[in-house]
Nucleic acid binder design. Structure first.
Lengths: 347, 347
DNA sequence: ATGAAAGCGCTAACAT
DNA sequence: ATGTTAGCGCTTTCAT
């Protein structure tokens, strides 16, 4: 492997000069620069990042921590984060967890030992111990949490205004005439889950509809299977709800699948709406109305925070909030267009 | 940051001894070992991996290279690879590409500069130049290609016997009475695409059915949109095909979506079958029959190859082949069970 | 503007 | 069995 000193020798200059050229540091004449560049080219020299890291204490490694669910949202997250990191010359290292598990303390330490320059997390269920470790890390390198804020810590965040999003969705349902709207809540132990429920409540109140607690079902997690099971309770209510709102798309898809199995017509008998607008929503039958979150913008923002924090251009803790936009499809509106949304699957 | 020499001083031993304890190297007495371990604990010492890597020339970093498609298969791939790598003490670093693009030479070099210990690739369209770089890398660290073999190079591979899989699927279709079976091929420039088509041909021949070239349509890529468009050509044939086989699930789902929009009944009018058995297949309506590939076993195998190669326990180039299994659902068999397959979405 | 040299934190070869 | 020390390949003072 050819190394820096070989380049120096070949170009007839000192190691320091080569290094300066490599890093675009000042204090090297045009002539020297050209000579070094030529040598680098001819010897096909590639710097050793490990050695560089040892000196500079930076690795250009950014850890990304995310649970593996089959939730397609994560593909978008991965993609956005990877692309944006690439743009700032960093590469993502994966510290993934099984769904509903957080990382072990050991894995967190591994990140530190490796000298990551930043960390982007998008996990929900945290154990206290792990959160504590994370706060420690946040004192040394920038940590950005995705879709969940940690007030009072050094952890930055990029979140969605879930209350506003859910408010929009439910207001839309009331606006098209629904008065009995079931809600399948999830993750009520966390702010994001509570806010979604609160958005639902507010929208009903503002539409002059009294909240019927019997129409609210809480389930354990944001999964298809949960929606599938929870909706069965709502179907026992009298009168039946005319619309059902899930805390996310997966839950609503579970609802869809159960109603389908019972030959309930959607939206004629019961309208169904989701939240997140994952690609899957455009594939199920009927296509699911939802609230689209600006995932790419959010990932870009997360990476931007990391970038600025590394450069020391940030003081204090940043918390950026994004809002969703309504997407109306067949599951709530029979007259909605049914055209296939290719772009969700081909780009 | 507390470092090795601090531990040594605290424990009253030499750096070398601490290092040996850290690495479980022989030549250190039980008494010393305990003393060092205690010091490590009390000082909460965490070794600096960068420094270690500089010395040992190993990073425990394994690059994984995969295009971002919304194909859910990749989630499984990611997950399997990550988990298995964790088990052998490595972490995955992501070098992802946009669909249908390979990495730039620059990114390949980045992997080398970072001193990755291995590489797992699962990309299809390669530019010559990039492939050449990859072969170079393969001479220095183990490279495993997923689902595509590179005979004549140093690249190991874990592949699927696509011909056998497709043969199974089409034989099943003929066995339930189909005689006019359309085939939507893709990626015929690559072995995997050609094998799928060949499996289709063989199955027909062995069933005593002459291959009607008019029932074969080739499209550009393995995407939903391709299936959606390509099926339109098959619908112009007389007599119509009674079954359509897509080169993968995405294509078949595109077929499903188009037929749905034309009110064609599936499977009564036309049966549809896919290949890959991605989770999505269990969600679409009707649920898609397919051929399931043992993705987890394959990822485990890929990582195992990396592991053994790193240890120098492999000589020559390994090429492991796996085969798929038939999964029958409603899209080909009206009487198939319609129960929701939770496990695909909750684990 | 350029060169010489001292480390970054660790491992491994060598000496004791 | 333990300690000492020379690097790993680079960056960055500090002289010149």
């Amino acid at each position: 492997m050819t190394q820096l000193k070989d380049v120096a020798k070949y170009a007839g200059v000192s190691n320091g000069t080569v290094s300066k050229v490599l890093n675009g540091s000042p204090g090297v004449s045009q002539k020297m620069k050209l000579r070094v560049l030529k040598a680098i080219q001819e010897l096909d020299y590639q710097p050793n990042m490990v050695a560089r890291s040892l000196r500079t204490k930076t690795t250009n490694l950014v850890a990304i921590m995310v649970p593996f669910t089959n939730d397609p949202y994560f593909v978008e997250f991965f993609r956005g984060v990877s692309m944006e990191l690439r743009n700032i010359g960093c590469v993502p290292v994966l510290y993934s967890t099984e769904p509903n598990k957080s990382l072990s303390t050991q894995e967190i330490r591994d990140m530190v030992m490796r000298g990551i320059d930043g960390l982007i997390v998008s996990t929900f269920g945290w154990e206290e111990e792990v959160l504590a470790e994370l706060c420690e890390i946040a004192k040394r390198v920038p940590v950005v949490s995705f879709k969940r804020a940690f007030p009072g810590t050094d952890i930055h965040s990029v979140v969605v205004d879930d209350q506003a999003g859910m408010y929009q969705a439910v207001s839309y349902l009331t606006s098209i005439g629904h008065k009995r709207i079931g809600f399948i809540a999830a993750g009520l132990d966390l702010e994001t889950g509570r806010q979604r429920l609160e958005g639902y409540r507010q929208a009903l109140l503002d539409a002059g509809i009294e909240v019927d607690e019997n129409l609210i079902v809480a389930c354990d997690s944001y999964q298809i299977s949960e929606g599938y099971h929870s909706v069965q309770q709502l179907l026992k209510r009298h009168p039946l709800p005319t619309a059902i709102m899930g805390a996310n798309d997966s839950i609503s898809i579970g609802v869809l699948k159960y109603l389908e199995s019972r030959n309930v017509r959607i939206p004629e008998d019961i309208a169904v709406m989701g939240y997140d607008d994952v690609p899957l929503s455009t594939i199920v039958t009927p296509r699911l109305s939802s609230v689209a979150l600006p995932v790419y913008e959010m990932t870009a923002r997360a990476v931007r925070i990391i970038e600025k924090a590394i450069k020391g251009e940030i003081e204090g803790v940043v918390n950026e909030s994004f809002s969703g936009t309504l997407v109306i499809r067949k599951s709530t509106d029979f007259s909605a267009t049914d055209e296939f949304e290719f772009e969700r699957f081909s780009k």
